[in-house]
Amino acid sequence: MRHTIISTTLTLVISASLSAPIAAEPTAEDAYEYRESIMTALKGPAGAISRQARGLAGDSDYVANHAKAIANLGTELHTIFVEGSNVEGSEAMPAIWDEPEKFAEALANAEEAMAALGQVADGGDMEAIGNAFMNVGEACKGCHDSFREDSEH
């Protein structure tokens, strides 16, 4: 009997400890970390496309995959700027939430440019991909200029 009680209690404790974090609401810190993950993920294919556009990536024909990766990540951008997620260490500026219309426009520019990059990806036309990537860069830079606190660059 005693054994049963202990095991039942243990089962309850274990299942509670497993399910609790999953059920919990994401914190501001979580939202910040998720944004960082998406932004970090964008840097890889961006750096890679720029090298391919400059002829610095050998014979790789992987460029369409990089372009699609950016286009896919671009569809997630509108979810990652959760209000209150400018926790310590975050470079997100309050203007993101203070000037929502201006920010929405900047974000829409980035999403459109990234989608357009995805659309030219399959053609394999390096010049078209390079130009579409330039537009993506312009949108990224424009948004960072107004809405990211750059401490180093």
Partner: peptide, 8 residues
């Protein structure tokens, strides 16, 4: 070079 875009 790491694929980030400058602000500032």
């Amino acid at each position: 070079p790491d694929g980030d875009f400058v602000g500032s």
